[in-house]
């Protein structure tokens, strides 16, 4: 009896396929899809029945709650607001688990001694996680638009599309912040914590800095919700440009730092 050649049972594995398998076999894609999907489907629903819920909850003679009829923009605002927190949380965790190469030194040794450069090792990880996060965000935006159209009426197409694009860029910002964090911090947990603090605390607080309030990352991260009731302004262009610049900078810093990794 002779062995059945492996050639018939396994396809070759390159760096890009490895990252695809990481996303699929670890089921991390499910976490992304479920969170963005449920927020997309759930938030317009919650907005639609929020008045009824509050009225039912305050069933007393001395408290009367009056809720105005929700508009289509309210459904989208609710979605964009929630994914900037819950969505960011999941994206950062998924990205942190993929980027923290040095968290397992024996495995990192094999990667670092086999793959010609650190960039060749990290680029597929960064690209795969970015695409997955963008796809999840796009899927969630589509779900929110669908649910809002049924429950609250059709949202403004321009504002919805702009909000979705900006929300996707915001998700990408969270991914690259995590990428940069893992370039400096070896531990998965520590890198995720640093990235979460950076995206959920430091970035919003940067809006308190005079001059950055309307054009910094804080303004950009709020932009998807703001755009549902306001027109695009010059400051929004600045906020977008600065955030894109920060994304490029963080990617560059991450790759540069990775060149100096030691185990």
């Amino acid at each position: 009896m002779t062995a059945q050649p492996a050639a018939e049972t396994s396809a070759g594995i390159g760096r890009w396929r490895l990252e695809w398998l990481r996303l699929m076999r670890t089921r991390r894609w499910i976490a992304l899809v479920v969170v963005f999907g449920l927020v997309g489907f759930g938030d317009p629903l919650l907005t639609r029945y929020l008045g009824a819920l509050l009225t039912g909850a305050s069933n007393t003679s001395y408290i009367h709650i009056t809720v105005t009829k929700p508009q289509p923009s309210d459904g989208m605002i609710s979605y964009f607001s929630n994914i900037s927190t819950v969505g960011t949380l999941v994206v950062v965790v998924v990205a942190g688990l993929a980027f923290a190469v040095r968290a397992t030194p024996p495995l990192a040794v094999l990667y670092l001694t086999h793959i010609p450069s650190r960039a060749a090792l990290l680029a597929p990880r960064l690209a795969t996680v970015s695409v997955a996060a963008l796809a999840a965000c796009g899927l969630g935006s589509a779900a929110a638009t669908y649910e809002t159209s049924i429950l609250l009426g059709t949202p403004a197409p321009g504002a919805t599309a702009a909000g979705a694009v900006v929300a996707c860029l915001g998700t990408l910002f969270a991914v690259v912040v995590t990428f940069a964090a893992t370039a400096f911090v070896a531990s998965q947990v520590a890198a995720i914590a640093v990235a979460l603090v950076a995206v959920l605390v430091i970035a919003p607080l940067s809006g308190l800095i005079p001059g950055l309030a309307n054009i910094g990352p804080a303004a950009f991260l709020n932009l998807p919700a703001v755009l549902q009731n306001a027109a695009w302004t010059t400051d929004d262009w600045w906020a977008t440009a600065i955030t894109i610049g920060l994304i490029a900078l963080l990617v560059g810093v991450g790759f540069q730092r990775a060149r100096r990794w030691e185990l």
Binding site: T9, I13, G14, L18, R25, H114
Partner: peptide, 15 residues
């Protein structure tokens, strides 16, 4: 999450 064959295959062909 890789099989033994896939692991060897990856490091064998990665460069």
């Amino acid at each position: 999450w890789l099989t033994a064959t896939e692991t060897v295959e990856f490091f064998r062909t990665v460069d």
